[in-house]
């Protein structure tokens, strides 16, 4: 109230658009809660919940990841306003996914957790993706941006290994169809193209 910065004014500028995106980002959670509470997840709700939260985690990551590509192709810089929120939601859905897995597959049994984390490459990749998301989640605030300066941008390049690891996590689960893994892989590569080119120029 006292100190209205430019940024805050800009945020307030459109009034309704951020709340709208926020509500849209909550819809998957609503679907998850609806399915979990009222049923409709079928005879194996555990599996359904894991797949559902995992799917939304990778979709949310793809959405955040697409922001800068859309900016460089279409000049949609306004999307930048939502990037922090989208990123936090990606972190949220990934954490929810991990929570479901830890509760229902691992039953919070540390011997199982250790075994899974030491033996199964797809679990290691998923866990590594989640770990690398954490520092980005923690620094997604104005204070950290100011505090870290240049290093903030460098830190948030972690999104590249996160996308790669998340993709490996899905590919290593393929049983009967390559379709999903193929779509995710193509999207990640295409969305990374503009930035790969930029890396070339800066070097």
């Amino acid at each position: 109230m006292v100190d209205v910065t430019d940024r805050a004014r800009q945020l307030r500028g459109k009034g309704w658009d951020k709340p709208l995106v926020f509500v849209l980002c909550l819809l998957p959670l609503a679907a998850v809660v609806y399915g979990a509470v009222l049923g409709g997840l079928g005879p194996d709700p555990v599996k359904a919940l894991i797949v559902m939260t995992g799917d939304w985690a990778i979709r949310a990551l793809l959405v955040v990841f697409s922001v800068s590509a859309l900016r460089s192709w279409l000049g949609w810089s306004r999307l930048l306003r939502f990037r922090r929120m989208l990123g936090l939601f990606a972190g949220f859905y990934a954490s929810l996914h991990l929570l479901v897995v830890a509760t229902y597959l691992f039953a919070w049994d540390w011997t199982i957790v250790l075994e899974e984390l030491s033996e199964r490459p797809y679990i290691i990749a998923g866990f590594a993706a989640w770990l690398l998301l954490l520092p980005m989640v923690v620094t997604s605030n104005n204070y950290s941006i100011r505090r870290l300066g240049r290093r903030w941008r460098q830190l948030h390049r972690l999104i590249y290994p996160v996308m790669g690891l998340a993709w490996l996590h899905v590919v290593w689960q393929v049983r009967s169809s390559y379709l999903e893994a193929l779509i995710y892989g193509l999207l990640i590569v295409v969305l990374a193209l503009p930035r790969l080119r930029r890396f070339q120029f800066t070097r």
Binding site: P43, V46, K47, Y104, E115, R120, Q173
Partner: peptide, 23 residues
């Protein structure tokens, strides 16, 4: 003998639910 990608020590007997996973 585990499947290389997951453990075979437990199973979920269906129908399972979130409150009682029937593991």
């Amino acid at each position: 003998v585990d499947h290389p990608r997951w453990s075979q020590r437990y199973e979920r007997r269906l129908p399972s639910s979130l409150l009682s996973p029937n593991r």
